Computed example of a mutant assay.
Amino acid sequence: MKKDLTKRATRLARHSFLALPLATLISGCTSLGISGEIPNTRQHNARTLESLTQPSDQQACYDREKEPYTPLVDAHFHPRPFGGPAINAEKLHAMLEGQGVRFVNYFGIGQILELDSGCNYYLDCPGVTAMPSIKNDFVNGMETVAYPSDNLHITLSMTFMDLAHPDDIVSLIELYDREYPGMFSWSGELNVVKQALLKNNHEPASLENIDQWGPFMDVLRERGIPVTFHSDLGNDANPTQFLPLMEHILETYPKNKIVWAHMGLSKELGNMDPARHVEILSGLLDTYPKLMLDISWDVLYNEYHQWGEIYIPFLNAYSTRILPGTDFVAANYKADDQYGKELEVTSRVLRALDDEAFENIALGANYFRLMDLNYHAPKVCPADDNGNR
Results as ranks from 00 to 15, higher is better:
Leu152Gln: 12
Ala75Lys: 14
Tyr288Trp: 10
Tyr301Ser: 09
His153Leu: 01
His376Cys: 00
Ile312Lys: 02
Thr10Pro: 04
Phe358His: 09
Met158Pro: 09
Gly141Lys: 15
Thr53Trp: 06
Leu113Ser: 05
Thr144Gly: 06
Arg351Asp: 05
Cys381Lys: 15
His262Cys: 01
Pro181Ala: 01
Pro289Ile: 03
Asp286Tyr: 03
Gly270Ile: 06
Ala275Arg: 14
Glu208Leu: 03
Asp236Gln: 11
Gln338Asp: 06
Phe184Val: 15
His153Cys: 02
Pro378Gly: 10
Leu113Ile: 02
Asn200Phe: 02
Asp137Arg: 08
Glu344Trp: 14
Asp218Met: 12
Thr53Asp: 08
Lys257Gln: 12
His202Met: 11
Leu49Cys: 02
Met183Asn: 12
Val219Trp: 01
Ser56Ile: 10
Tyr304Met: 10
Glu251Phe: 14
Ala237Ile: 05
Thr159Lys: 05
Lys334Ile: 07
Arg348His: 07
Val193Ser: 04
Leu22Val: 08
Asn151Met: 04
Asn332Thr: 11
Leu370Ala: 14
His277Ala: 08
Ala130His: 02
Met1Asn: 13
Glu189Pro: 10
Phe229Ala: 09
Asp327Ser: 07
His202Ile: 10
Tyr106Val: 09
Ser171Glu: 08
Ser319Asp: 14
Leu350Pro: 10
Ala130Asp: 00
Lys290His: 05
Asp150Gly: 04
Ser231Thr: 13
Glu97Gly: 01
Ile322Ser: 11
Arg11Asn: 12
Asn386Lys: 13
Tyr121Leu: 10
Ile280Leu: 12
Cys61Trp: 01
Met158Asp: 13
Leu269Gln: 14
Arg223Met: 10
Gly98His: 09
Ala362Pro: 03
Ser319Leu: 12
Arg221Glu: 15
Gly83Asn: 04
Cys61Lys: 14
Ile225Gln: 06
Thr159Met: 02
Lys379Gly: 10
Arg102Thr: 06
Leu353Trp: 05
His277Asp: 01
Asn140His: 13
Thr287His: 14
Glu309Arg: 13
Tyr106Pro: 15
Val349Asn: 13
Gly270His: 11
Leu207Ile: 05
Met161Arg: 05
Arg221Gly: 10
Gln99Ser: 10
Ile169Arg: 07
Ile258Ala: 04
Leu373Phe: 09
Ala9Ile: 00
Gly100Glu: 05
Leu243Tyr: 05
Val170Lys: 15
Ala261Leu: 07
Pro324Leu: 02
Asp63Gly: 11
Lys66Val: 12
Val128Lys: 00
Val299Lys: 07
Ala23Leu: 13
Ala130Met: 00
Val349Phe: 13
Ile87Thr: 15
Asp167Val: 13
Ile310Leu: 00
Ile361Cys: 04
Arg389Phe: 06
Thr129Gln: 01
Met292Pro: 00
His78Thr: 01
Ser133Lys: 08
Ile310Glu: 01
Thr320Tyr: 11
Ile295His: 09
Trp213Asp: 08
Leu18Ser: 07
Tyr375Leu: 07
His76Ala: 07
Arg64Val: 05
Thr24Val: 11
Ser149Ala: 14
Phe17Leu: 12
Asp294Arg: 02
Thr287Gln: 15
Ser56Cys: 09
Asp218Trp: 03
Met183Ser: 12
Ile210Cys: 09
Asp57Pro: 14
Ser319Ala: 13
